[in-house]
């Protein structure tokens, strides 16, 4: 067997490429979100056609980001894929349970304000982060 320096960066190179690709798609998605939310108010005065195009573009770029995320996941080695999927499962579970309970709060008059979906998204992101860190610590 010959172990050379050239061989040593296959996984790292692939992961680096996929991470950069995912970062670009995520950035593009955030930009299209911004355009779809603020464009109607600031730039085209709620023109239906332009708003439809902006939302369609946001959905199309979102689909691209999902595919890029899939490619990223497939490029990981099996331990990191497991850590990623475990964190996803935790985030999805917490998001589902919390969103359901949070949605009920207004109806049962436990909160006075309208529940905001963004709070659930932030919670899911934080849960995913905690799950990923916990996974890395577990297998360190």
């Amino acid at each position: 067997m010959s172990i050379t320096k050239q061989e040593s960066s296959k996984l790292a190179a692939r992961t680096g490429r996929n991470t950069a690709n995912l970062r670009n798609w995520a950035l593009a998605w955030v930009i299209t979100c911004f355009i779809a939310v603020f464009g109607p108010k600031w730039w085209w005065d709620f023109n239906t056609l332009l708003s439809s195009i902006a939302v369609s573009l946001n959905l199309a770029v979102g689909a691209g980001m999902i595919l890029s995320n899939r490619r990223y996941l497939q490029g990981l080695d099996e331990l990191h894929r497991k850590i990623f999927l475990d964190a996803c499962a935790l985030s999805l579970g917490v998001g589902l349970i919390t969103a359901t309970a949070y949605g009920m709060l207004k109806n049962v008059k436990l909160i006075a304000f309208e529940p905001d979906i963004n709070h659930v998204i932030i919670l899911m992101c934080l849960t995913f982060l905690v799950g990923t860190i916990a996974g890395h610590r577990k297998y360190a």
Binding site: M1, I3, E7, S8, S9, K10, L11, D77, E78, L79, H80, H136, Y139, A140
Partner: peptide
């Protein structure tokens, strides 16, 4: 490197 996984794995 030979097994195309990370050192952590």
């Amino acid at each position: 490197d030979e097994l195309d996984v990370s050192r952590q794995t």
